[in-house]
């Protein structure tokens, strides 16, 4: 009780909690859940974009895309490390992902159907992620906060590249324009949804805010995202697939129409267009890599033995 009071006081003073420090079990549990979900999202997120490396239309775009997907793998790596500081192993986290127990961002359960999806994911999906991550960079847990600072910097770069692509295609040939519009049509709503349910349907929010893990609610972050992106999309001459979207002079906000939460919960509970294929791809990679990991272990063991013998 006393310890909890002290812990909450530290958080109120804006101190960071570090791995060795005392923390409530629930704080640890929530962080493990969030960080590992976040890590899984980076790893699963490699799939929808990675599939287009082989089909990028120029050498430069191909190179940029490989670099981006590589960054995602790197983010996965930092985040697994950050979660490990809370006493869970990477194996345990992977196991939870492959068994379907752990979640990852619902957005990666939508398919990438054309090259314009690559630009749109960079612009909208990374754009939404950044809003969330900027908030999490303020988080009370030191390792997560520091990982977020680093990740945010790279994501900002991806966001810029994605936006540049979509704007370019919006000015391009009729086929390019149509492709860009189609991508916006398909990704707009999923991007809004990926920021999570409305505050009233988000039971964890209160405790997360109190412990300084989150500093804003889902709806606040979503509003920031819309306020930035809606006017930019419209300015590019593209439309947004929300007939009720409008600018509210009073609040200075862009107000959106009702979100199809039924679709959101379907996707979260495993029934999105790509849930099966994504998990299947991860499982296959893991299973087909088993002999490689065994060989590495056997090799390392032999090396160790040889070293001892000398």
């Amino acid at each position: 009780q006393e310890r909890l009071a002290e812990f909450e006081a530290r958080i109120r003073r804006g101190e960071k909690i570090e791995p060795g420090d005392w923390m409530p079990e629930e704080y640890r549990r929530q962080l493990i859940r969030m960080i590992s979900q976040h890590a899984h999202s980076e790893v699963v997120g490699m799939l929808p974009e990675g599939a287009w490396i082989t089909r990028a239309p120029t050498l430069k775009r191909k190179m940029i895309l490989v670099a981006k997907v590589q960054d995602e793998a790197g983010h996965g790596q930092y985040l697994y490390h950050a979660a490990e500081t809370l006493g869970i192993s990477r194996e345990a986290m992977l196991e939870a992902l492959l068994s379907g127990k752990a979640k990852y961002s619902s957005i990666f359960n939508y398919p990438t159907l054309t090259w314009a999806d690559i630009g749109t994911i960079g612009w909208l999906v990374d754009g939404a992620a950044i809003k969330n991550q900027t908030m999490l960079a303020q988080c009370s847990y030191g390792p997560y906060s520091r990982a977020m600072v680093r990740i945010c910097a790279e994501e900002t770069f991806h966001h810029k590249q994605g936006k540049e692509m979509v704007l370019l295609y919006a000015q391009g040939t009729p086929k390019q324009r149509a492709m860009a519009q189609d991508a916006i049509n398909r990704w707009w709503w999923p991007a809004l949804m990926m920021l999570g349910p409305h505050d009233k349907d988000s039971p964890n929010t209160e405790v997360l805010v109190r412990w300084g893990i989150k500093t804003k609610t889902n709806d606040q972050v979503r509003q920031e995202f819309i306020n930035e992106h809606a006017p930019e999309i419209l300015a590019a001459g593209l439309s947004i697939p929300d007939p009720e979207l409008r600018y509210d002079e009073k609040s200075g906000n862009w107000l959106h129409g009702p979100i199809n939460w039924d679709e959101f919960w379907q996707v979260v509970s495993g029934n999105g267009p790509m849930n099966k294929e994504r998990l299947e791809a991860r499982r296959r990679a893991h299973a087909e890599g088993a002999w490689v990991r065994e060989a590495l272990e056997a090799y390392a063991a032999k090396q160790k033995k040889a070293a001892v013998a000398v």
Binding site: P48, A51, R55, P111, T112, L113, T114, R186, G270, N271, G272, P273, M274, N275, K276, E277
Partner: peptide
């Protein structure tokens, strides 16, 4: 028991069609 994703429009496709 859980049928999973049930596509509802032939306007959308899998990632394989391309």
């Amino acid at each position: 028991i859980n049928p999973g994703y049930q596509p509802t429009s032939r306007a959308y496709h899998t990632e394989h069609l391309w």
